[in-house]
Write a protein that binds this DNA or RNA. Sequence first.
DNA 1: GGCGGGATACTTGCATACAAGTTCTTGACA
DNA 2: TGTCAAGAACTTGTATGCAAGTATCCCGCC
Lengths: 226, 226
Amino acid sequence: MTPITRDRARARTSDRVYDELVSAIRELRIAPGASLSETDLAKRLHVSRTPVREALARLVDAELVHVVPQVGTRVGLIRLRDVEEARFVRESLEVAAFEKACSDPKPDVTVLRELLERQEHSYRTEDYDAFFTADEALHCEIFTLSGYPKAWQAVQRMKLQLDRLRRLSLPDSAAMRELIDEHRLIVDALEQTNLSAGRALISRHARRALERGPALRSEYPGYFTD
Amino acid sequence: MTPITRDRARARTSDRVYDELVSAIRELRIAPGASLSETDLAKRLHVSRTPVREALARLVDAELVHVVPQVGTRVGLIRLRDVEEARFVRESLEVAAFEKACSDPKPDVTVLRELLERQEHSYRTEDYDAFFTADEALHCEIFTLSGYPKAWQAVQRMKLQLDRLRRLSLPDSAAMRELIDEHRLIVDALEQTNLSAGRALISRHARRALERGPALRSEYPGYFTD
DNA sequence: GGCGGGATACTTGCATACAAGTTCTTGACA
DNA sequence: TGTCAAGAACTTGTATGCAAGTATCCCGCC
């Protein structure tokens, strides 16, 4: 009954490379538009090109990198239009998940309260990574409560573009404060199964990350494309 | 200005294998639960294992196949719970897209009307593949009109499970008739920007495919899992 | 000094060889 | 005849070699 398969799956070099690249791109440790070389990545990660190529194939599917056959592969630039589409998907699904979660007359928000506390703590200690992690977990929990956890995966795929934009605007203490407050209001609305309030709050919350889009584009023009 | 890159992309063996496998799985030419062998696939497609592996890596990402490291890889069984989640994602996004498309006071439904005609024709000639293709194009067009074409891609990913279920229930002339009629009502609602009618119609339409789920599960127990 | 052409060094795509592990079969023995 | 063990035949994972194409750099020439 030991989860051997999972251990083995974690051991796969290809997956390790994939996780490494995804987080590196999300956290902007690899800049948008940066050139990637299979051989270079292979050397740096001390593996052969094969697992690197398989990881890159998946990244191409997620539209995080683009590869031109005999030329090179590079990290995709941020397209505000794509970010806006990601916002649309996220907002639509999260509102729907919220409504579904509200069909329970007494939603269990204990986990959400815990995550709110974790986020408050991360805010006070200025631990941005923990802040992000708690943020992710909080939104994921809403989907879990709705009974549609896989929908969160669909959101996450689209959200990768959005995450890079948010990363660009960090650290922003005031914005973080606002995000936490909005989270609290959303949790309150869920606890009271207040549909209309939840819809409005989630909608506003989802659009928050895009507000600074044009400004960030002016600040980092090399990271964007139209 | 010729789309050279696209031609080259299509020429890639890996992509060809991927497309081939996806359509084969969707069309149930490869049964749910069937064992796949990299070497076998490679021989059958007259390529080496490398492009086959890269295609499989992407299929694993889409959760269409599962691979156990030194044991084998097999096509995933149909999970009605996953299908239900796909329905949720599709319905939520399509309703949201419909609402967005209705923000245009005079939506251009000419393409939708054309697709309706194409579907009518496919229905009369009993060309199920063409029927499906037109169905896809019709729903895609709604997202195009909404201004969020990429959202359709997200839907398509989730819809793969659902497609297999629909394929199982084919051919069903009565069901096809109903689908077309529902499509027509949805297009009418869009043309009149009738939000509430559209929401109800799309919701009912999306749930249609699941109705026969339990019955199909009883009929093809080997294709399903819980 | 500016410009053009060729070689070189890079890129990815594909095929193959080897390694490690699992399963199934087959044969020997009790 | 049943059972167990050893090996053969599969599986996927990884590394490497080769092929084909592109961009770049440097040198010669105008």
